[in-house]
Design a protein around this nucleic acid. Sequence first.
DNA 1: GCTTGACCTGGGACCGGTTTCATAACTTAA
DNA 2: TTAAGTTATGAAACCGGTCCCAGGTCAAGC
Lengths: 312, 312
Amino acid sequence: MTNIHDIARLSGYSVSTVSRVINHQKYVADEKRAKVEAIMRQLDYVPNRVARDLSNGQTKTIGVVMPYANHPYFARIIDGLVSAAFAAGYKITLLPTNYDLTIERRYLDQLRSKAYDALIFTSRSSSLETLEKYRKYGQIVLCEDPGDDRPLAAAYTDREASYVNALQWAQHHGFNSMGVVLSRNNIISASTRVTRSAYQQVYGKLDSRNLFVGAVTYEDGYRAGEYFAQLQPGVDAVFTNGDDIGAGVQQYYLDHRLAPIPTIGQENLLSSRLLKFSTIDHHLEALGTAAFKLATGQTTTHELIKSEFIRR
Amino acid sequence: MTNIHDIARLSGYSVSTVSRVINHQKYVADEKRAKVEAIMRQLDYVPNRVARDLSNGQTKTIGVVMPYANHPYFARIIDGLVSAAFAAGYKITLLPTNYDLTIERRYLDQLRSKAYDALIFTSRSSSLETLEKYRKYGQIVLCEDPGDDRPLAAAYTDREASYVNALQWAQHHGFNSMGVVLSRNNIISASTRVTRSAYQQVYGKLDSRNLFVGAVTYEDGYRAGEYFAQLQPGVDAVFTNGDDIGAGVQQYYLDHRLAPIPTIGQENLLSSRLLKFSTIDHHLEALGTAAFKLATGQTTTHELIKSEFIRR
DNA sequence: GCTTGACCTGGGACCGGTTTCATAACTTAA
DNA sequence: TTAAGTTATGAAACCGGTCCCAGGTCAAGC
């Protein structure tokens, strides 16, 4: 493999000069610049990325921590992230956790080892305190509202407002007993906290009988549908944590020839369009883009993305 | 930032010894190993990833070239890829191209610069000749059948067999005029080539009037549906290049109160389940896993994944 | 007693770049 | 005429690791 020293030797100039040519710096005589460039072309030389990264102390790479790679919620965020990173000449590395604390810790240590310039947590299991501890090793961006006075950067959607808005709309349409589907029943999960809070504001205390926990996929939603269909007294609508899950709920009712159950989904995916139920679009691509800008320090420390309630 | 020299100095031993401790090599006295480990813990030391990569001449990172990040076809491949990479201690970096040749070339040059150990092309615009030229800089894996005697590694599904199988099934059910939807009408696109070939085998020459090109999303599929609905003489079924596109076709017919049009999709996504049309599952996660193994040289140079026709 | 081999250790080259600094020539302004 | 600034260049330190090799100790085998 040919390196910068080879180019220097063959051109007769110093490594410094070659480096200047590579980086398009001034203070290189035109004639020497031309000769060095010619030799680089001739030898088919490309500077070693890793060596430059070591010397520069940065990798222009951002690690994106997420529980699962193939989930529409994260896929949409990643989409925005990848576009923004591409435009800025950054690379995105995918870091799956399956919500495992040990694995999250491993990625934090990789940040410490300078493998990434920044870490974006699209979701997390670690405590805020843990994340803050690692802040000094690189930028850390959250995709949730960490609350006041937290030193971590964060991009998030106005979930609470949009949830309240959607639930009020449902209540106004006469749905008085609302089922709720969540992924994790966990204080660490921002979406869980916010859903509970919004429900509380509109419907009052959430009876745990009206709650189905542990839904991530369509199949989970189908099981949630089964749960609600058999519930006595039943619910007359369901608020779900995702369109595909909502689709599962509806499909259960459909398959069992029950009266259709009004459903509110999230993410505005194809499934809610096909089944024509209302949904909340959190504009997750924009969330990803905002998170990227925070990660590279282009923006202030907090960024709010407006969510949109889509009535169907 | 504390480095290996600090640890060496503070422990009173040499850098070599510290390095041995870090890498759990033998030939270090127990007492020294213990002391070095204590000091590393105390100083909260983590070896610099980039420096190790430079010295080792590898990054344990694999670049995944794909046209769009947020498309279910690529998302499923990436899912398999990320899981396999995680299990093997590798990192996956996403490289979007939007099918731009210049951008693909940029990624090939990054392979040359040793930024990645290998490159996986989930789809491509570059010619095979171009890719082969870069082979010497690192492993290059294709997600299509490159044909005989090509020096590139490849993981692919038995598309042709599954297409022929699906089309024969359709013909057997009395569908004699079959519409076809493609993404790109391009010899470089393996899926286009194979679709044409399979169609030829079952239905004979493909009349371009029965062909709709340029479909990637649901909306594109909807437009394809409009096209076929107005076609005279019409088609009595449609073979599409993806479930979401198939869903678009069906939805157009539904929205316009036309008789439902039998559709064959691909990828076995939620949309084909909800709308209950047949599809071909290419087991793309397995494809991703296989591609990863090829990229790291764990497997031979070609890997065939069986596709599955799902009748609905 | 001497060879052999396993165990242990540190110096220093090496991976491939960037950057600081010293030096020098050549302008320009006072 | 001289001080100050601009342009141009290379030596060498530096980023933070890995690893080869030379040198030393010590016990087993003959």
